[in-house]
Design a protein around this nucleic acid. Structure first.
Length: 280
DNA sequence: CTATTTGTTTATCC
DNA sequence: AGGATAAACAAATA
């Protein structure tokens, strides 16, 4: 599930652990989540450290610990962060924290248990020791909400990917960090562009529509889902896109679900007719 | 039993 | 050579 806004939400779930020491690290070294990570080194370096800060960029999370230690987390398809509180009257923490089958990484603090849970294990955990944040973090492209993502950058990328469907293009993290399947559908619906449209076909005013839809969906998603995971209003495509019988909030006509660029895509044929009306 | 899934990497083909 | 596409990863859910 996690896209830009969900990742930002999950980042804050661990906030109560800020400025608190890690007493113990539990992890499942066989979980695929650690495929790029030396789990022994990770445990050694995090034990006894204080969680200083956290940040989210696109779908990536970075937690900074004392002693120049950095924990990178990507949630993949099914990853989530959660937390449980430890009752201060109970000293037996093992009896307080019931480890779920898919809790592959756990930081135990004196008052909180910070948990990474991922059933499908497409998520990724990595560790970095150094004065500076890791290189992969610094290389994440500028946030879509920043002024560094502008119409010129969008146009240049659409030109480079001119033969791809716009749906596939919007999912490219190298240009649109944080966009995922539902956000891409929401953007195209708001900009009234068919998901099968080739990138080259978007020009002039339609390029402007697309640009502002990207900005708007990022802002709205962060303000609603990213803030406290409250349910978006029914005026978004979001609430209607998951099942097979959803109706377009604009036209009240049935939405269509098809695979576009390898991903399930929901769109409103009556509402999204750019670049022409030849498809239904 | 089968089909589907909110993400990314890798191999393969053009 | 660069870019598009399909498969693979793994487990839950319908």
């Amino acid at each position: 599930m996690p896209e830009l806004a969900e990742v930002e939400y999950y980042r804050k779930v661990w906030n109560p652990g800020l400025e608190k020491k890690v007493r113990q690290v539990y992890l499942n070294p066989h979980a695929r989540n650690f495929r790029d990570c030396n789990t022994l080194i990770l445990k050694q370096h995090l034990k006894g450290r204080v969680l200083r800060s956290s940040a989210a960029k696109g779908k990536h999370l970075l937690f900074h610990f004392s002693g120049n230690n950095w924990l990178g987390i990507h949630l993949g398809m099914s990853g989530k962060l959660c937390r449980t509180c430890i009752d201060k009257d109970r000293k037996d923490t093992q009896s307080v924290f019931k480890q779920d089958k898919h809790d592959h990484f756990v930081l135990l603090q004196s008052r909180h248990v910070l948990i990474f849970n991922d059933s499908r294990m497409f998520g990724r955990i990595c560790f970095h020791h150094g004065k500076e944040a890791p290189e992969w973090w610094r290389n994440i492209p500028p946030a879509l909400s920043s002024n560094n993502f502008d119409r010129a950058a969008l146009k240049a990328y659409l030109t480079r990917r001119r033969r791809s469907t716009i749906k596939g293009v919007l999912l490219a993290q190298e240009r649109f960090p944080g966009l995922g399947n539902w956000m891409a559908d929401e953007i195209l619906w708001r900009a009234r562009i068919q998901p099968h449209c080739h990138a080259a076909q978007i020009e002039g005013d339609k390029l402007k529509d697309l640009f502002y839809a990207i900005k708007e969906v990022c802002r709205d998603a962060l303000n609603v889902i990213g803030k406290d995971w409250s349910n978006p209003p029914d005026s978004w495509l979001f609430n209607h896109r998951w099942g097979n019988k959803g109706r377009c909030p604009k036209t009240n006509k049935l939405l269509k679900r098809e695979t576009v660029s390898g991903r399930t895509t929901c769109w409103s044929p009556a509402w999204q007719q750019w670049p022409d009306c030849s498809r239904d």
